[in-house]
Design a protein around this nucleic acid. Structure first.
Length: 201
DNA sequence: GGAGCGATGTCCT
DNA sequence: GGACATCGCTCCG
């Protein structure tokens, strides 16, 4: 990958309805600096979570200390811990005071695969399709935790965690219902890259 | 290859 | 006390 082509996505991109931000994030690149190494993955699956009118969204119960990032300015990392085992990464959307976000569910690994495998704690020569497919697996592969990354500005290319674009063409987007939730499970708010094999099941 | 289930922390009611 | 935006293991076919 041509790293000199990487440009951090600007804040205004996130200052919109998550239903517009979600599809625009497909094909973009999640970048993690891990010491001297660069871990990168192309975003292939995301879900939008809205505000009071979306019962599945953490923001639907109103602002609490836990979900405050979703109510803050756009372009920041909302990281939460789920099921006692896993972290999940979101980026806040909409202006300060208005909640909303995008959950990152899967990336296609591009660079830093040995480091990702190490962070996942799995054997060498793994099934690459399962390295970064699913929000918990993806977060683990990128070493993302709430303590380390919660609240971070994801528009800062000097940060150790940000979202970038390269010169590649935007992918074809397919919209489906969201996965793994019980409330509002029928809302069409999941966005995936058509035909991509790193999308979760 | 799919259904069932346990592990496990955090937060809200 | 229970819900939970998950994962990986079992067991069954």
């Amino acid at each position: 990958m041509d790293l000199s082509r990487l440009q951090a996505l600007p804040r205004p991109l996130y200052d919109r309805d998550p239903r517009l931000v979600g599809p625009d994030l497909l094909g973009k690149i999640l970048v993690r600096r891990q010491g001297r190494k660069l871990l990168t993955g192309r975003i292939v699956e995301v879900e939008a979570y809205l505000g009071a009118d979306d019962p599945a969204a953490h923001a639907s119960i109103g602002r609490t200390p836990r979900n405050a990032v979703l109510f803050g300015p756009p372009g920041h990392a909302y990281v939460y811990f789920i099921y006692g085992n896993h972290y999940c990464l979101n980026v806040s959307c909409l202006p300060d005071g208005v909640p909303g976000g995008i959950l990152f569910r899967a990336v296609e690994p591009l660079g830093g695969l040995p480091e990702m495998i190490k962070l996942r704690g799995i054997a060498e020569d793994p099934d690459l399709r399962r390295l970064t497919s699913g929000p918990g697996r993806m977060a683990a592969a990128f070493g993302i935790t709430r303590e380390r990354d919660g609240g971070k500005d994801l528009t800062d290319a000097k940060s150790d965690l940000y979202i970038a674009e390269d010169a590649s063409a935007p992918p074809e987007v397919v919209i489906t219902r969201r996965i793994g939730i019980t409330k509002a499970a029928n809302m069409p708010l999941r966005y995936i890259v058509a035909g991509n094999r790193f999308v979760s099941r």
